[in-house]
Structure formats: C-alpha cells, structure tokens
C-alpha cells in the first residue's frame, strides 16, 4: 500500500479560522478584500490566467484510504504576504484548525512554519513535540534559501521530533513580490511558471547541500513534493562536479553532494504523467537514487492515485515506491 507524502486540505471560508485568532486580529482580517480571496488563495498552483477559480472542496479525513501527510496548503501562501506578523497569526490559526479538524487515522498534519519568523516558529513547534497528530512540517519558500542558518532553530526542533520537512511551492513564486522568483524574468504565462517550478526545488536543494545543513542536522529528512523527480539526476551530476571543482569554497561538504541526497532527501511522484516511458530516463537512477522516490497524490487538485502511477511508471516502480514510502515512514517513526 502506498503512503501519500503530499496531499492538501484547506478551509472553504477564511472566516472559519477567526475563532482561533485573538479577537482583535480576527477583526483585522475580517474584510471582504481578504475573505473574498479564499478562492484565489486556494488555487495552489495559480497556473490559471482566467478570472475565476474553481470552488473549494471540504476536506474529510475519514475518507482517506491511505496514510497521508496533509498539508494545510493555504498556509504556504504567506510566502507572498506583505505582512509577516499577520502571517504568524494566520498560520497559527490554520495549524490549530488542521490539528483539530483534519487529523485522523490516516491523516497526519504537516504544520506550516511562518517563514518570516523561523525563530518564533521553532518555539511554537516545540509545543507540538510528541503530538501524534503531527506528521511533518512544511516551510513556505522565501528568498532565504533552505540551507541558510536562519532555519537552524526550526531544523533543530524538527530533527529532535523526527518530523520530515515537506517542501511544496505555494504558487505565487515568480509572481508576488517577496516570494522567491523563478528562473529568468517575468514569464509569458502561468503555464511557463508551472513548468519551471522544479527549479525552486533545485536551488533550495543546492543551498541545503553546499551550506552543510545535513552535517549540522544529520537526521534531517527533506521531502521535495510536487516537483516531479526527473530533474534530479542532472542536478546531482552538476552539483558533484561543482563540488569537485570548488570543494575548497565549502570544505565542510565532506561527501559528494549526491551522497548526501541519498541520506537526507526525498522526491515525490506527482505529476507521474511527466515520467512516462521509464526506458528513456530510468538509467539515470541508480538503485540508491531510486530508493528516494515516494508517492504524493497532490489531491484534491489534479492528482495521481496508485493506478496513475502504475500507468505512467509501471509495476516495478510502483512496488519500489511503495517500499520507499515504508522506509521513509520507518525512518521518521524510529527517529533514525
């Protein structure tokens, strides 16, 4: 059976969160311009240039059939917010709501970090240590890349609690001021941005590797979710090569970058449809590397199920992904 390392849940109305905020803050948020943006904020890839967004679906944890990490995806969008303090209030309310309403037998929550305040977020996280409803954390991407020391307080708590860090884009990257840009300059359409999203995973992975994050936190497990996975071998070769050329610039990187990825990094299947014809790419995946691929459904948005993964990748890969998923769950549970 597969385990789902990235599925989403969201509120259908932002007003739902008001009781979980200090009253004054609830009043501050309670304005049409913001509450009316719930549909926009709920389009987690924002690849549409249309002037409407599809209606939301309420999340019902009891309907999950496989053990899943549930990401309160509306929290990710604070990477494009102008007010970092409001972001903290919102993320706290959303996390509280998620733990209350969305955790279940098959649903463990990925707590959202307020990326504008890693220190404060780390303190908040400490309160949740030992809470079995929590399965992971997720960090909305900012221009402070994930290898930077400012994230250390978060990683310290996370490593101790044996939570993996799930990374997924919020959708405003390359669009909102303050959110991380995508490669190049403003893109001609939203589809281009969607196509180029894996670059965010690449850049942040390079940052984690070269800054020596996995030496500071050797048990840290980072899951790059929803970016696909075919991009990985090319980047690993390139990072290894740069390391051979310029190791003296980062002498704390004692192993070649690809070796670190084999210990600390995972990628996920969605969208599996971009990885059809394994014969054209699987030769680039060593046995070791192919053990780093786990399943993500991306539900309730355009999503993959087991059949979709099998249709694209074939039964051999499906089996492998299933056993990888168990492996990752085991690492997290055992605190290895």
């Amino acid at each position: 059976m597969l385990r789902d390392f990235c599925r989403f849940a969201g509120v259908t109305r932002f007003e739902t969160l008001f009781p979980r905020m200090p009253e004054g803050w609830a009043r501050h948020f309670d304005r049409y311009e913001w509450t009316g943006a719930v549909d926009l904020a709920s389009n987690h890839i924002r690849v549409s240039d249309r002037f409407s967004h599809p209606p939301l679906e309420a999340f019902e944890p009891e309907r999950l059939t496989v053990p899943s990490i549930v990401i309160p995806y509306q929290g990710l969008i604070v990477n494009g917010w102008a007010d970092p303090v409001a972001a903290a209030v919102f993320v706290d309310a959303l996390n509280a709501h998620a733990l209350d309403q969305w955790a279940g037998d098959n649903a463990r929550i990925a707590l959202v970090i307020n990326p504008h305040d890693p220190n404060g977020s780390a303190e908040t996280l400490k309160a949740h240590r030992g809470d079995s409803r929590v399965g992971a954390i997720t960090i909305p991407l900012t221009t402070a890349m994930l290898g930077q020391g400012i994230w250390d307080p978060v990683y310290r708590v996370v490593e101790e609690a044996n939570w993996p860090v799930i990374i997924h884009f919020s959708g405003v990257e390359g669009a909102y001021l303050g959110a991380p840009p995508l490669a190049g300059a403003p893109h001609t359409n939203a589809l281009s941005r969607h196509i180029l999203m894996p670059h965010l995973a690449e850049s942040n992975l390079a940052s984690l590797v070269f800054e020596g994050t996995f030496y500071r936190f050797p048990r840290l497990q980072v899951v790059l979710a929803g970016f696909g996975f075919k991009w990985l071998p090319s980047l690993l070769r390139r990072m290894d090569q740069e390391w051979r050329n310029f190791r003296s610039d980062m002498p704390w990187v004692k192993d070649k970058p690809s070796a670190m990825v084999m210990r600390n990094v995972w990628v996920t299947t969605y969208p599996a449809g971009e990885a059809t014809r394994p014969d054209t790419w699987e030769g680039e995946f060593s046995d070791e590397l192919s053990r780093r691929l786990v399943f993500s459904s991306n539900a309730p948005f355009d999503s993959d199920d087991e059949q979709a993964v099998e249709a694209a990748l074939g039964g051999k890969w499906l089996d492998r992904i299933a056993s990888n998923s168990l492996e990752l769950s085991g690492i997290v549970a055992a605190g290895r």
Binding site: Y215, P251, W252, K254
Partner: peptide
C-alpha cells in the same frame, strides 16, 4: 588546501604542498 571542516570554518593547511590543476582547479 582547505581541510574538511565544520560548517562555516576554513581550515587552511599544506601550504606549498598542493598543486592546483590549471583547468578545473582539482587539488
């Protein structure tokens, strides 16, 4: 060369005993 070190530390050693390739700087 820079000896393998802790993050953000530079530990310079073997001065005068390391030759650096004129192309890719392999030491």
């Amino acid at each position: 060369t820079m000896r393998p070190s802790a993050p953000n530390q530079y530990d310079y050693a073997l001065d005068g005993l390391v030759v650096k390739c004129p192309w890719h700087a392999y030491e």
